[in-house]
């Protein structure tokens, strides 16, 4: 009695494939605006209700172990302070490769994330490991600089060896309706990235509405983002699970239309394993298993790593160790 999803289609031969045809996805600002305008709206109450429901998933025992290791492998271990020192970055990179020196079964994290001037140092420390070096660029975190300066920022980070670039969008341009300008900036930065992966930070705390988050997500993906990222961590509202849900729906739908999987990075304010696991449940039940990989999902965080290590240790031994058992950087 089972039928396939497509069985209901009344006349299959009428299906016209427009979207998968080769060529540029967007050919004018008007086209971009029309495409973004055609996206379905987001019902805020519904999004938050869905997130609250998924937060009741109970991840225990073997599932918890799997989730903790998965989360560890997805961390972009981040330090983005004016006070960052060479020693701090060196320590961070060491920890990224071997988060718990006493336990070799702990996976290394996905990447370290630093300012452009520290890329060369970080690259040197992680050399030969699987840990990538990500650099923020384009006048992070505000994005308030000329295009020339932004591109120079990117080029510097790339030439220093950055594997990944975390750019910020011009929120002022987006919110004032200059969607073409935001699009062109992303296209230009993508070109400047060369082979480096591009993460586009939407700074969802400043976009405010879920409709804006959905629109900005599609805009970034259409312009060539490899990842869409929630936040800089520098404004008061950083990553939230409802925002992550909207972005995960966007990457899932984008893959349905264009056959290309874009990653999602949640950043800012994620400090506990419990929180991280709730994000993984969102990924699992929204975008699906294909996204449960550091290639397609990341946590931009710093203190999260120690909590993951502590919970992992607790699961194995049954008791909590004191927090000083793990290094601060």
């Amino acid at each position: 009695m089972k039928s396939k999803v497509g069985d209901h289609a009344q006349s299959v031969d009428n299906v016209v494939t427009l979207v998968t045809s080769p060529g540029p996805r967007i050919d004018s600002e008007a086209h971009l605006v029309a495409t973004l305008k055609a996206l379905p709206g987001v019902d805020a109450v519904g999004v938050e209700a869905r997130v609250a429901k998924l937060a009741t998933r109970s991840i225990k025992t073997s599932a918890k172990k799997e989730a903790l290791d998965l989360a560890l492998s997805m961390v972009d271990l981040t330090t983005l302070e004016g006070a960052d020192t060479f020693q701090k970055v060196r320590s961070l990179c060491t920890k990224a490769m071997l988060p718990d020196p006493r336990d070799a079964s702990v996976p290394s994290v996905a990447a370290v994330c630093v300012y452009p001037d520290l890329v060369a140092l970080a690259k040197d420390v992680v050399k030969g490991s699987s840990v990538k070096v990500a650099s923020v660029a384009t006048a992070f975190p505000s994005g308030r600089a000329s295009m020339k300066v932004k591109l120079a920022d990117v080029e510097e980070a790339v030439s220093a060896g950055a594997d990944e670039i975390d750019m910020v969008i011009d929120r002022g341009a987006f919110l004032s309706g200059q969607l073409g300008r935001v699009y062109e900036e992303i296209v230009a930065v993508k070109e400047a990235c060369g082979t480096a992966h591009l993460k586009v930070i939407l700074e969802t705390g400043e976009l405010v509405t879920y409709d804006n988050v959905r629109k900005a997500s599609w805009l970034a993906m259409l312009a060539g983002a490899d990842f869409i990222k929630t936040s800089t961590g520098k404004v008061s509202v950083s990553a939230t699970r409802p925002v992550a849900l909207v972005m995960l729906e966007a990457v899932r739908d984008f893959a349905d239309v264009y056959g290309q999987k874009i990653g999602v990075k949640v950043a800012g304010g994620i400090r506990t394993s419990k929180d991280a696991i709730r994000y993984l449940v969102l990924v699992n039940e929204t975008a699906g298993s294909a996204w449960l990989s550091p290639d397609l999902f990341r946590f931009g965080a710093s203190s999260l790593l120690n909590d993951l290590l502590m919970q992992r240790q607790k699961l194995a031994s049954g008791v909590y160790v004191r927090s000083d058992e793990f290094s601060v950087d």
């Binding site: 998933r57 109970s58 991840i59 025992t61 599932a63 799997e66 993984l280 699992n284 298993s289």
Partner: peptide
């Protein structure tokens, strides 16, 4: 959906 298998809870 998902390779994250939820253990019985």
């Amino acid at each position: 959906l998902g390779s994250l298998d939820y253990a019985p809870a």
